[in-house]
Design a protein around this nucleic acid. Structure first.
Lengths: 231, 231
DNA sequence: TCTTGCAGGATTGTTGAACAATCCTTACGC
DNA sequence: GCGTAAGGATTGTTCAACAATCCTGCAAGA
């Protein structure tokens, strides 16, 4: 006799079984190339090239590329092709507009605030420090993303987690436009540490304010960098 | 001699020129059917049927359906087909978890708070009252969505607007599972009015708190309805 | 020199047909 | 009632083709 609880538990695992059509795997592969920076912002992705590179048919490739367009990782121009997204000033401003509402709110009011949630933050902070000590600034960027993902994780909302994933993927494209990312990550190691400490002390309001300050500072720095970037 | 300003203005209009591939139009058509409730939650959409109904090829249909799956309007089960999404308790809880963070924050801190923004709210409120007077509770639901869309619009963020659009589309599917929607819309006409009045008076903090209360009440009512719904 | 118009080639948008893999149904035997 | 096998239907994926559109280069004209 199987218990109802056991069946419900199995039901939640269904997503793991079902996964993985070819189109999804193609999308995953291309997304990986983009967020890791091996495909530069603005670069073109001819369908035929993706077909031969991954040995799948053009229809499947189109399905995968459409998904990445919906994720804002790529942009499609009709009859011209798909390109790696190249976020402009407005995009950066808007991403931070969204983050500035979501992240502090998750810290202040998130339902999933718990010892485990804060522990995930601490892990990301340590990951960042370790990467900085090793001089791997790309890894520091990844750790930073884990930190902010963990912040939003305090809300306990899969939908917000997913949305945050899109915003952070877009941020990676922003950083890939920058000549040197160290200046964008180094100042925030200490800030992450401070935010984490406030949360460990249980002061969610102060932590939320610190996150707001953090985001304002990061946006200002990025906009300055954009001024120096294109004309 | 064309001025630089005029060219920049044209550039901003580019999105209007580029629009409209067949797959997008198919996606729009199917989304419309779902959101308007002519396709019920849980209903199956065989690819072939969509092909013949809209006179497009199966590949194009698949591209459109994939997009709607990404929007959570449809769900795909491998080798079984796509179905109109049928949000369960967890989905409802999570949608409200997200809304409860985003909407009050937009009201409290939104950058686009302005006379025009509040005017859009007032318009939605009046639309709701008019529809209620006419006894058209479906239209009241639409007006309610316009109201919440306008709330998030106060943030002035296209990305948040889009996210809110997805959440509201999911909410329509929730309501389409309900036998009678009047009970879900009627109590909130007065609440919308009150929230709008607070914002017209410039009291954003009180308005944000009222939005939070609103969402908590709506979620509780919906979960009760779900208890009465499935077993 | 600068612009305009026009072939030619390449890529995208879309279609149609095909096939293997998988699922659903039904019938059969136990 | 339960496991199993056969048959049909649908999905996942590929291939090949064509029209529409874009880009390039070049020639003609102001």
């Amino acid at each position: 006799m199987t218990s109802v609880d056991a069946l419900a538990s199995l039901g939640r695992a269904r997503a793991l079984v079902a996964r993985s059509t070819t189109a999804e795997r193609v999308a995953d592969a291309v997304r990986e190339e983009v967020v890791e920076g091996r495909l530069r912002p603005g670069e073109r992705l001819p369908e035929q090239d993706v077909c031969t590179a991954l040995a799948v048919s053009r229809n499947t490739v189109r399905e995968a590329l459409s998904q990445l367009v919906a994720e804002r990782v790529l942009v499609r121009e009709a009859h011209r092709g798909v390109f790696v997204a190249r976020p402009d000033r407005d995009a950066v401003r808007d991403v931070y507009r969204a983050r500035r509402l979501i992240e502090p709110a998750a810290v202040r009011y998130g339902e999933a605030w718990s010892r485990d949630g804060v522990a995930a933050l601490r892990t990301a902070v340590q990951e960042g420090h370790a990467a900085a000590a090793a001089g791997d600034w790309n890894a520091v960027g990844s750790a930073n993303q884990h930190f902010h993902r963990a912040l939003v994780g305090l809300a306990g909302s899969p939908r917000l987690d997913q949305q945050m994933g899109l915003l952070l993927a877009e941020m990676r494209l922003v950083f890939h436009r920058m000549p040197d990312v160290r200046e964008f990550f180094e100042p925030y190691l200490a800030r992450n540490d401070a935010i984490c400490a406030l949360l460990e002390a249980g002061d969610r309001a102060a932590a939320a304010d610190a996150v707001t300050d953090y985001l304002d500072a990061a946006l200002a720095q990025l906009l300055d960098a954009y001024d120096a970037l294109d004309r």
